[in-house]
Design a protein around this nucleic acid. Structure first.
Lengths: 165, 165
DNA sequence: CACAACTTTCAATTATTATTGAAAATATTG
DNA sequence: CAATATTTTCAATAATAATTGAAAGTTGTG
């Protein structure tokens, strides 16, 4: 397998993996492309290499910037924007967690809190108990992700490993 | 808000949340419906209450069984199948983790291992290093999920909490 | 074993989500 | 500030994924 083939393969794999987790294929592929390229790339490069349209490339580059997974870079004497990916995968993981927490977990917590305001009745007791169980789980996983986000990779996984002893 | 409204709301919320994580809306809704119902329900009930077709109900019930999130139950004197959800949310979380690990994480690990077999060259060094970083992260998160799956909820989160001290 | 009850399958359809590409907006240069 | 380069937007289109429903399959019953 040549390097080019391997990169293409990785882009495909990362794209498929993304879709399974609710991230659109193009966005995951743009991310993958930047993860495996040494040089920063401009919109044109990305359009060509992934065979996608300008609109698609632009939208997903913007979105990846919102997730803090890629950076803009300027090349002297060139007015195009160039992009480079954050390569520290522990950072990448933390930023993805942070963003999904903000966009999805927090709204879910809001909703669950609201649902507990259901009018009281004999039948609502079991319902509220179920919602509270879900809430407890979500809060704990959220707390875990907060710990992960604050912690250094090695310290965190080192300590987790100790738990197994 | 009446209990019925709250249940409907929860079903909607859970459905939306599911789609954001790559789980189809109907499956998440069927799961939500069973999570908040005291009695077990047959296909007909589910079709009516969620306004979905027989095929859809059947497929998602079957899939939820594959995930071990719901059980079949028999009602004496009735030959229909009835379904009930696992209500222990810690169990639910562990089973979802287990299934996603099997279906998605393990294949990803396979792929990454394959990619490292790229033909060696000056340029491939950086590529292999990136893949190895991704691999390391995936392996660690996988290890964490294994720990979670084996652990009791209280012990696990208790110990995690200690890490913060 | 014939009938009825129930479940499963799957090709066709519908709904949802992603993508395109050209036009509008914005930024940069001389 | 005009000319040009670059980025952004968004309505139209295409691709993907979910859903339907009727027919086929299966299971239980008298």
């Amino acid at each position: 397998m040549t390097l080019e083939q391997a990169k293409q393969q990785f882009i495909q794999t990362w794209g498929n993996f993304g879709t399974q987790w609710g991230i659109n294929r193009s966005m995951a592929q743009v991310h993958a492309l930047l993860l495996v390229s040494d040089q920063s790339k401009c919109t044109e490069d990305i359009m060509t290499e992934l065979s996608i349209s300008r609109g698609n490339a632009n939208m997903n580059l913007r979105e990846l910037m919102n997730w803090n997974l890629i950076y803009k870079e300027t090349v002297p004497g060139d007015r195009k924007e160039y992009f480079r990916a954050e390569k520290d995968m522990w950072e990448v993981a933390k930023r993805i967690m942070k963003e999904r927490k903000r966009r999805e977990i927090e709204p879910l917590q809001q909703h669950l809190t609201e649902l507990k305001k259901v009018e009281q009745s004999y039948d609502s007791i079991a319902f509220v108990a179920t919602i509270e169980n879900i809430e407890r789980l979500v809060n704990r996983l959220d707390g875990l992700s907060n710990t992960l986000m604050k912690a250094d990779e090695h310290i965190f996984f080192g300590k987790i490993l100790n738990l197994l002893k």
